[in-house]
Simulated scan of single mutants.
Amino acid sequence: MATSTDLILCERDDRKLNDHTMYICNPKTMKGITLPRPPRCYKKSFKGFASVPYSTKQFIEYSVVVVNCGDGHGYVENEFGFEAQVFSSRIGKWKEVVLILPKPFKAFFHSCRSLFHDGILYFYDNKNGMIAFSPIISKEKEKADDETLSIACRSIDWPLDCIVDDQSFVTVDLCQERLRLTQKKGMSVNIWDLKDNDTSKWEVKDKINLGGLTSHDSSIRYISDFRTPWILLGFNPFDDAVLYACMNQDRIVSCDLKTRQLKSVFVMPDESKSLLLSSGMKFFEDVRPFWLIF
């Protein structure tokens, strides 16, 4: 569902047993911890994950945010705020919160995704921009056991020249400490970097025609029409000139923005193709942390 500081937030989705247990997993040790069940079970929700490691101790503080999407039919829109629950590792329990919005935010629970950076959790939707807030509950508010907390959010709009519709797809990545927006529409890919959070100021970084990409790799055939499926996965977190994508539903490729060259990175096994088609795929940063909490 989400990652933060090299940990993965997962959820068991067993509708027959009504089991929606959430886990935080460490892919390096192949171990995990189970989160307690939230006090309220939403029919549909979107989720965010934020974790902050400490360099002096083998310890990490984390928060999990679950946002209520009502009955889950299509888009959920709220003019004033979203009902949510936040689990804080510091207090070891869930707190009910209301995310206060500066303006209406419309999101589809299937496509709303999250990203945590520099103490701020971002939720973004394909069409409707982002909301941003701090998911860390302060020590003063921890003591209010029965009080519903209010958390103020900021709105960040997409660039004016990012025209979104049912034929376009956007993703947001953390690339060299910058938030990067990538939009695919047809065979065009447009890229912006967020320059100013407060004013929603974006800077155009590149525009790519997928049909014009070439490759010296004999395993990649030349792509020149709309019939070849492309799924954007994300940028290399350490090289902002390398974009990863899934091509032809079975091959992970890297695109060098400087040379416009494609390279084959990984061929997906047959059992993974149906998963990609049914639920989508996301590229996550993998780092070597200085801590191991489990």
Rank of each mutant, 00 (worst) to 15 (best):
M30N: 05
K57I: 01
S55L: 13
G92D: 05
K95L: 02
R40L: 08
V65A: 01
E77K: 14
G32Q: 09
V67S: 07
I137P: 01
V65P: 00
K139F: 03
D118Q: 15
I120N: 02
Q85A: 03
I100G: 00
F108L: 10
P36A: 08
E142T: 02
V67G: 09
P39N: 15
V86E: 02
S51L: 10
V76C: 10
V66D: 15
Y124S: 08
Y42A: 05
A132I: 01
S111C: 13
F59H: 13
N26A: 05
P27V: 10
F116I: 03
I24Y: 11
V97E: 05
M130G: 02
K95R: 15
K139A: 09
E140Y: 04
L101E: 12
S89A: 12
V97D: 08
E142L: 06
H117Y: 14
F108T: 08
Y42H: 11
V52G: 00
E79W: 03
P53D: 12
C41I: 11
A50D: 05
R37Y: 12
D118P: 00
P102T: 12
A84I: 03
W94F: 09
G32M: 10
A50K: 06
I33S: 13
K44P: 01
I91V: 08
P38H: 07
S138W: 01
P39W: 05
E96Q: 15
I33H: 01
